[in-house]
């Protein structure tokens, strides 16, 4: 059971949250101009890294805000949470 820090509510038990997939995937603007491959890339392709991963979580049983978490998929250590639109705590640009 992870301990996740909501940027607003602070540290809360994982059971209050729901996972919302990889972070920093931006919806393309002019979708009609995209090739099938470009659209499929947005739709289906995910990094699924072994190691540092940026992912979205929803504080579902709490303040109902989405935010980003930087988590190591091997050790499950969380380096930090950050609001949508901010940069991850590791300083690695996304």
């Amino acid at each position: 059971m992870l301990l996740i820090e909501c940027p607003w509510c602070g540290e809360r038990d994982e059971s209050e949250f729901s996972y919302a997939g990889e972070a920093h995937i931006t919806r393309p603007r002019e979708t009609k101009n995209l090739s099938d491959e470009e659209w499929a890339d947005y739709l289906f392709m995910r990094k699924n890294p072994r190691g540092l991963h940026r992912e979205q979580w929803l504080h579902a049983a709490g303040c109902r805000r989405y935010f980003n978490v930087e988590r190591d998929t091997v050790s499950y250590q969380i380096s930090g949470s950050y609001k949508i639109g901010e940069q991850p705590p590791s300083g690695e640009k996304v």
Partner: peptide, 13 residues
């Protein structure tokens, strides 16, 4: 509800 909030909070703030 979560789906619509997600669009509002993450894509179209």
């Amino acid at each position: 509800m979560a789906w619509m909030e997600r669009w509002l909070q993450t894509e179209w703030p």
